[in-house]
């Protein structure tokens, strides 16, 4: 009887998957987003949300210059993503297709995943005594007469924030690229080489297109995490690197939920604009819809 019911519902052909996914996704993600956008048109007065639509909060967001935190957060996140991609891609290539033995590969992968098991705050806070005025590096520089005065830019500026974020999000970039590269069939590379293809040709025509899903995954994971980063800017930025998360926490401490909503909406708008720009710029080289075709069985 169950079988006949299932047959009648025709579950086997998978046509139900998309509507199901859309329904769940709309409920879990889209609906809260709509609530968020609606809230940004209310305002807070004396710790109370006043449910009367106006542009008051949006006006505040721009007149106080607060929107700058979103631009700063985006700038730092993009810089970190680009640096991680620049280091992560060759690293993943070496790990997946280099001459490293199985043991070295396994050990490197294990090392890359270790950070996921240690609390981020404890990993970041150890940099403070290393980078501060009387810290390890400054003591070394002075002892070796490489610097006569303490290098104060090493802490409580944007430099250490970038530095720590590049380290924090490196595994986010490397692991997806590695996974994509690892499944590239070696015979394809060998065939390309047999036909006289230079290493550059192999990279451009075989490795790059086939690892594109991993690269995109790495970019999304790194950019997303970096955009919401608060540990590194808070602990190493010394309050001078005001990013999105700090601004949201501060607004929430005055119960300014509409401001939190407006800030978040503004970031979503920026991200959509950025993705559109990216798609336009890459239109000549890749068609986003076809990126994952290599994954098809």
């Amino acid at each position: 009887m169950l079988r006949s019911l299932l047959r009648r519902l025709n579950l086997a052909d998978g046509r139900w998957a998309l509507p199901c996914f859309l329904a769940v996704w709309s409920f879990l993600v889209i609906a809260p987003l709509v609530v968020l956008i609606v809230f940004s048109f209310f305002q807070t007065q004396f710790f109370m949300t006043v449910y009367k639509p106006s542009f008051y909060t949006w006006n505040d967001l721009f007149s106080s210059g607060r929107f700058e935190v979103t631009l700063r957060a985006l700038r730092i996140a993009l810089t970190v993503t680009v640096i991680d991609l620049a280091i992560g891609f060759p690293f993943a290539l070496w790990l997946a297709k280099g001459k490293a033995s199985r043991t070295v590969q396994a050990m490197t992968l294990a090392l890359l995943t270790i950070p996921f098991f240690i609390d981020l705050s404890s990993r970041i806070i150890v940099w403070r005594p290393i980078l501060d005025e009387h810290g390890l590096i400054n003591s070394f520089l002075r002892a070796t007469h490489l610097a006569s005065s303490p290098q104060r830019w090493m802490l409580y500026t944007e430099w250490p924030v970038h530095f720590a974020m590049v380290i924090s999000y490196f595994p986010m970039m490397v692991l997806p690229i590695y996974l994509a590269m690892n499944i590239i069939d070696d015979t394809l590379i060998a065939a390309c080489q047999d036909l006289g293809g230079s290493p550059f040709r192999v990279l451009r025509d075989i490795i790059l297109p086939l690892s594109l899903p991993g690269i995109l995954g790495g970019i999304v994971f790194t950019l997303g995490s970096a955009l919401g980063a608060w540990v590194e800017p808070t602990m190493l930025g010394g309050g001078f690197v005001d990013v999105l998360s700090n601004s949201i926490t501060s607004a929430y401490s005055a119960l300014r939920v509409p401001m939190v909503a407006a800030l978040s909406t503004f970031v979503i708008v920026l991200l959509i604009a950025l993705l559109c720009l990216l798609a336009l710029a890459m239109r000549r080289f890749v068609r986003l819809g076809e990126v994952f075709r290599s994954m098809k069985p």
Binding site: F47, G65, R66, E68, V69, D242, S250, S253, A254, M259
Partner: peptide, 18 residues
């Protein structure tokens, strides 16, 4: 903890941070 113009003060403080 609840100044009457908390929203304005919080906004101005963001200007200082930025």
């Amino acid at each position: 903890t609840t100044p009457s113009h908390a929203d304005a003060i919080e906004d101005e403080w963001q200007r200082f941070l930025n």
